[in-house]
Write a protein that binds this DNA or RNA. Structure first.
Length: 295
DNA sequence: AGTTGCACCTGGCTGC
DNA sequence: TGCAGCCAGGTGCAAC
């Protein structure tokens, strides 16, 4: 999926179209994505206003005027397209009176807003989903209860990582992907952060803490580079791979800054390191790293 | 408790 | 040109 930086970029792209706007029409073109849509999904949204658009980890959260929250996850291939009012009037998309009204096969949900914007959700693999829940019960919702810390928040530092990882015999790669510990990192940014910290993805997570649970220097460094990597990616507008596009259809640039991800066989970019980026498989997923400088 | 493997989907790319 | 096989940013569950 879109990992945290991409979701944050989408959030920013959707804000002008959604916040303050009322759902005039909602077109739901199939009964499910990854999960079934809630009962009467489209009908329940209609007439409600979006008061704010937030993000938690890789989830988008639209606060609605009636106290509910529209929760959206992009899965691997979910993307939003924003059509501004002038283009919408020109009938480019969202002609609700025609069967496909300019819609593509994988355009699953279309929001027609009171401000004239049209927001289309497209998801080729349908690993994404949308649901509705009450704002008051949000953090008790199964999706969010037990979710780990927000890596761009203030809590993330070496001491916290050490506490989370203490005694863990799982590899660092897996620990960082575990959304119950730190929420928002995915395969790309875990690889990137570990390379920046010169830490091997194979190393056991528990080695970042002393036996008493105190942070090692590596723990502090890792916390710093996680934040740095994510912030740079957000700043670059999120990265883009094969099937992710910005809300405006443009492409992100952070992909050109990947140091190891998808760079198998290339020289390690660490200054002074003569290693080569290699690909290994950890829990069924590609890990890219340099065995020479990442220890 | 910790893995791993698989499942959910579609499509793009590679190599024969 | 066709086709099989592999790969993909996520997550959850069953099984060892």
């Amino acid at each position: 999926m879109p990992e945290l930086p991409e979701v944050e970029t989408v959030r920013r792209g959707l804000e002008p179209a959604l916040v303050g706007a009322r759902f005039e029409e909602v077109l739901q073109r199939r009964g499910d994505l990854r999960f079934p849509f809630p009962e009467r999904f489209a009908a329940r949204l209609r007439g409600r206003t979006v008061e704010a658009l937030g993000r938690r980890a890789k989830y988008l959260l639209a606060d609605l005027s009636d106290g509910e929250v529209l929760v959206m996850h992009l899965g691997m291939t979910g993307r939003f397209t924003v059509t501004p009012p002038d283009a919408a009037t020109a009938g480019m998309v969202g002609d609700f009176h025609h069967e496909t009204g300019g819609l593509a096969v994988h355009d699953h949900v279309v929001f027609k807003l009171s401000n004239g914007f049209i927001v289309t959700y497209n998801d080729v693999r349908r690993f994404g989903f949308m649901t509705l829940t009450s704002r008051a019960a949000l953090h008790e919702h199964p999706l969010f209860r037990g979710m780990g810390i927000e890596p761009l928040g203030n809590e993330l530092d070496g001491a916290l990582l050490a506490r989370l990882f203490k005694g863990k015999k799982t590899p660092l790669k897996a620990a960082l992907l575990d959304q119950r510990l730190v929420a928002g990192l995915g395969n790309i940014y875990v690889c990137e952060a570990l390379h920046r910290a010169r830490l091997s993805p194979l190393r056991l997570a528990g080695t970042l803490a002393t036996p008493k649970g105190r942070p090692t220097k590596s723990a502090g460094l890792l916390a710093d580079v996680i934040r740095e990597t994510l912030e740079e990616a957000v700043e670059a507008g999120g990265s883009t791979l094969r099937d992710y596009a910005h809300t405006d259809g443009g492409l992100g640039y952070f992909q050109h800054r990947f140091r190891v991800y998808d760079r198998e066989g290339e020289p390690c970019p660490t200054p002074g390191c003569d290693g080569t980026v290699q690909r290994v498989v950890q829990s069924g997923r590609s890990t890219f790293y340099c065995a020479t400088c990442q220890r």
